[in-house]
């Protein structure tokens, strides 16, 4: 049975797994350095980078782009190879979704959907790598460079970092604003915010309602993805606390179930991006 010490140890284990590898400006000394503890990372405030999130997501994104780019360069209209078939089926799937939900004319929407879909899938899939492998590897590297292994943090799944999901959703938010103004005109967009849904008399109320509606888009987009992946990762960590010979009985079913979530969340994100883009392009609603 768990003694007090073991409880603290497992608490530390969980916290350690949920802490990002933070490189930021120490507010006391003004020096840019690695945060040694969660406390230090917190004190760094906004002036800090999560190197694990940035690194992993960059590697995955680059992987996706190079793979697609290399196949795309060798594309042939004749009998396609296996890899080309694979990519074409993905492209077709995205294209179908965009055609289904997006009525405007914008050559950016489909590539945007493709990028969000594949990138999020890849980032989510990092969840299926056993929770200790990459952090352990990172610790060994850290030790090699003379760091205290307990102070080397590594959070593998970028989408369990709200910075990643908000980074994407804010990008989407900017696109929504840009295309709303471009397609409807500044006046049209303002009119939509001010005079819907209740007409001129209820202007402040309209503004509040539409404002919340607008802000809710990126926030819900980011939080939904983050929440799902964070919860999934948390359960993997909790399973990892069990004795090793019993772990598989829980981690296997959860991993199988999680594959569904990985794909589903990416799909939801992509679909919503397409829908939001469509809404931004609609000129004369009502």
């Amino acid at each position: 049975m768990a003694t007090g010490n073991e409880l603290i140890a497992s608490g530390d284990y969980i916290k350690h797994h949920l802490q990002n590898l933070t490189y930021g400006q120490n507010p006391n000394t003004g020096v840019w350095e690695f945060a040694h503890t969660a406390q230090e990372a917190k004190e760094m405030g906004f002036m800090a980078f999560h190197l694990d999130t940035l690194g992993v997501s960059f590697i995955l994104g680059a992987l996706f782009l190079t793979f697609f780019y290399r196949i795309g360069k060798k594309m042939t209209a004749d009998t396609p190879s296996g890899a080309q078939n694979f990519i074409e089926s993905i492209i077709e799937f995205i294209d179908e979704n965009v055609r289904g939900s997006f009525n405007g004319k914008n050559p950016m929407v489909a590539p945007l959907a493709l990028t969000t879909f594949i990138w999020i899938i890849l980032m989510n899939t990092m969840d299926l790598v056993p929770v200790d492998w990459l952090p352990y590897l990172a610790q060994q590297v850290g030790v090699f460079f003379g760091a205290d292994p307990h102070h080397v943090f590594f959070k593998v799944v970028p989408t369990t970092d709200p910075n990643a999901t908000f980074g994407m959703s804010i990008g989407i938010f900017f696109l929504i604003l840009y295309y709303s103004i471009k397609e409807k005109g500044a006046g049209g967009f303002a009119g939509e915010l001010l005079f819907h849904p209740f007409g001129k008399m209820m202007l402040p109320f309209n503004l509040f309602l539409e404002g919340v509606n607008l802000i809710a888009k990126p926030v819900s987009l980011a939080l939904r993805l983050f929440g799902n992946m964070y919860a999934g990762e948390m359960i993997f960590i909790l399973i990892a606390l069990l004795p090793f010979w019993i772990q598989w009985s829980l981690s296997l079913p959860w991993a199988i179930f999680h594959i569904l979530i990985v794909l589903l969340q990416a799909f939801i994100f992509m679909t919503l991006v397409i829908v939001y883009m469509d809404m931004a392009h609609q000129k004369d609603e009502h």
């Binding site: 990372a41 493709l114 910075n163 980074g167």
Partner: peptide
């Protein structure tokens, strides 16, 4: 913690999307 990572991710996302739109 929300920090510069978010800006980094935003830039990365924009770059990836641009690349995808241009070359893929």
């Amino acid at each position: 913690n929300i920090n510069l990572t978010m800006i980094g991710q935003l830039i990365m996302f924009a770059m990836f999307t641009w690349f995808c739109m241009k070359f893929i």
